[in-house]
Computed example of a mutant assay.
Amino acid sequence: MDARIEQVVSKGKCTLDDTEYEVESNTYIVGDDDEVIVIDPAHDAEGVLKAVGDREVMAVICTDGLDSHLNSVLEVAAAGEDDEENWAPIALHRNDRILWRDYFAQLAKEEDDPEDAKALRSLEPDIWLEDGGVFEIGGVQLEIQHTPGHTPGSVIVYCEQLSVLFSGDTLHRGRPGSVGGVFSDLRRQLNSIGSLLTPLPKDIRVLPGQGGETTVGDEDARWESWGALARETDD
């Protein structure tokens, strides 16, 4: 097993329910000296590609379809390649397809060239993520688990060999993941988090889409207390 994890932190904007928020996002690069998979390229494609270096990007995984995880996805997938046939496949859960289409439809409106605008409107992910799907890189497996709530198609990425859970914005350190403190469907999100954490070893590292890392054990101990937060959002 030669795989290692690298992190790139970047600042930018994320839109939720037509409101724009300033966020600081984590991008994770998993792989060895030759090949990598990029999880959640956010805001700063140049910074991500600098960290990738001359390694080949084998796939780009988006843990949700919000614009903070899409605004650099094409540049990172291309990784300097002009020929689209050589671009890395982009992976997203099908339940976030409407978020994907809304984002690229908006880009198309801002495009002057009609052919480029048409291409943006017709763009689709190369891989539709599914619960239990597996990617392999650097001698390890990255397993996908569907965790709806933050968005309908939110997923996490679990690597048993590296003892790490990439939780995206489903789960942050100390609380359910959110954008600017706003939750889309908190009760469903909490159900997803509970189902996720319960069977896992408590010492598994959790690397979230925003903020610092935590562990499964620390967040599992907090999970029940978040029910009060859900009741507050209902009010």
Rank of each mutant, 00 (worst) to 15 (best):
D185V: 03
T151W: 02
G47W: 06
D234E: 15
L16Q: 13
E22F: 14
D82C: 02
T214K: 05
P199Q: 03
T147A: 12
A59V: 02
L171V: 05
P152H: 07
L197D: 12
A78H: 04
E75P: 08
L229T: 14
D44H: 03
I127W: 04
G80K: 05
P148L: 03
L49W: 07
D218L: 09
V76K: 00
G80F: 06
E232Q: 12
G53P: 03
I137C: 11
S10K: 06
M1H: 12
H69R: 08
R173S: 14
G12H: 06
Y103T: 10
D131E: 15
I144M: 10
E85C: 03
R173I: 00
A59R: 07
E224C: 05
R94C: 11
E84K: 12
Y21H: 15
M58F: 00
R187I: 00
E56N: 12
H93Y: 05
Y103N: 12
G209V: 06
I39F: 00
G53H: 03
D82K: 11
S122E: 14
D169H: 07
Q189F: 10
G181Y: 03
A108H: 09
E24D: 08
D126R: 05
Q141L: 11
S184A: 15
G31F: 04
H43Q: 10
W87I: 09
R121V: 01
R188D: 10
D96M: 07
M58C: 12
E81A: 14
I144A: 07
G177I: 01
G12K: 04
D113N: 14
A78W: 02
I90E: 02
A117M: 10
W128K: 02
V134W: 01
W128G: 10
D116S: 15
T215P: 03
S163T: 13
L70D: 01
R173K: 12
R94P: 00
K13P: 01
L186C: 06
F183I: 02
G212Q: 05
T233S: 11
S72E: 13
G217T: 08
Q7M: 09
G31V: 02
V48H: 02
S184T: 12
E84H: 04
V38T: 09
V179L: 06
G12D: 08
T15D: 10
G181C: 13
I39C: 01
E84Y: 02
P41I: 04
Q7Y: 00
E115S: 13
A78V: 10
C14V: 13
L70F: 03
G139I: 10
E75H: 06
P152A: 14
R94D: 13
E115L: 13
A45C: 11
C14K: 00
E24P: 04
H172C: 11
Q145S: 15
L92M: 13
S72W: 07
V48W: 01
D40R: 06
L99V: 00
V157Y: 01
K11P: 00
